[in-house]
Design a protein around this nucleic acid. Sequence first.
DNA 1: ACCTGTGAAGATTTTCACAGCA
DNA 2: TGCTGTGAAAATCTTCACAGGT
Lengths: 250, 250
Amino acid sequence: MTVPPEADPEGTAVRLRSIPEASVARLALYLRMLGEFSEQGAETVSSDELAAATGVNPAKLRKDLSFIGSYGIRGVGYEVRPLLHQLEQALGLNHRQAVALVGVGNLGHALAGYGGFGGRGFPVVALFDVDPDLVGIHINGILVEHVREIPLISAERGVTIGMIATPGPAAQAVCDLLVSAGVQCILNFAPVVLQVPGDVEVRKVDLAVELQILAFHVARRHLDDATATAVNGHPVNGHRVNGAKGLSES
Amino acid sequence: MTVPPEADPEGTAVRLRSIPEASVARLALYLRMLGEFSEQGAETVSSDELAAATGVNPAKLRKDLSFIGSYGIRGVGYEVRPLLHQLEQALGLNHRQAVALVGVGNLGHALAGYGGFGGRGFPVVALFDVDPDLVGIHINGILVEHVREIPLISAERGVTIGMIATPGPAAQAVCDLLVSAGVQCILNFAPVVLQVPGDVEVRKVDLAVELQILAFHVARRHLDDATATAVNGHPVNGHRVNGAKGLSES
DNA sequence: ACCTGTGAAGATTTTCACAGCA
DNA sequence: TGCTGTGAAAATCTTCACAGGT
């Protein structure tokens, strides 16, 4: 028997389930920007201010926040501190998420030393590689261990997120090891599509693809300019100059 | 006078303009995967094969390819080699794109040494930083120059893409310098929203946000499991498990 | 007067399903 | 038969515009 489509009407948990995927990505953005507002001593922000700071449309932002049931104050805005906590809770940042990083070559080494993780509630608690020259060294005070230790050590240290920064061909095997250790969330920097069970979430960061998307836009722009010039006699400047627009992002 | 909606019927250039943004991102993916198929000596691929390899729905893939006017062969599939060239052309990879990288701290240093760029037609031709300890050193054979040289050197070396890997507070100033040098495409790793003129394209890669999105999914999953277990008596395992592919073990 | 919360319209993207060709 | 190419339906996401508090 399957789960009925509408179990638990008005339940406390269910509202989370219904946050659109696209909104989740932006909520994370709002959270960081709110942190900065908070550090600067702001008590409240309006949707317009926060929207400008994050490059998002204000109505969209309000709708995003409405998904986590936030309470803004009409005529005023949102109280920074409470909103911040609400976002943290919605994003599951109440309990720390321990990160294991596999592959400490070029990119991996940088990620291991990158301050942006630990400071934000994602401490890197384990490093792995296969290279005998790397296994045994310390990076940022953390010992690099052999990949074969992944299952044991991940379980031991309560790893919930795995980052894969290995060469492409090694990624799937590493992924399988992480999954076998119970890791359900994987951030994949390797240029391959990982095969995982349905209860594992994978996100991919693909730098070469990002550049190619940009390359496409250069090419298109040159074509646009050429045709527009041919018709108009002078180049176009089509888009609005960014009152916080146009940087739609994912 | 504005540009007429349908100048150049059947023209070679215009079709490019109409590729949906979401498709462009996937075309880059197909391109890489095709490269691998090609290396393995495949002559043709079906949309199903390529879709499986890239993790995309086959119908979506066919539609994506139809935007660049590709000619597949019914009953057979696509010829790897010609399709590859068509994709390269559509993505603007016929002429090399020179990349300038600003900020060679932790992350930037790794990016500078990352082989995935130069090998794919995106040679890094200039490095910049403000830190006196870094200015003057060589990374991968490239001299790190002072940020103030950005306008001059970028123009000299024909930079078309800028990558910003500085700390957040420095990013906007660096961005302005790149724009003043005529750079129209920027890949931004700094955790800020850049303000740019309308003719400049920015893409953002935000690692902390990626982790937070994952964290959200862990949290949601735990809630789901809890409720599903409560209803079913055992945890759910929603999706298909995806026929054991490949690169097995170590 | 100002700003949130949201129904409804609009735009975009995904998926289906099948005609048509090799 | 097998697989592409594509209208049309469905799903998702964005934007508008305004009711309703403060």
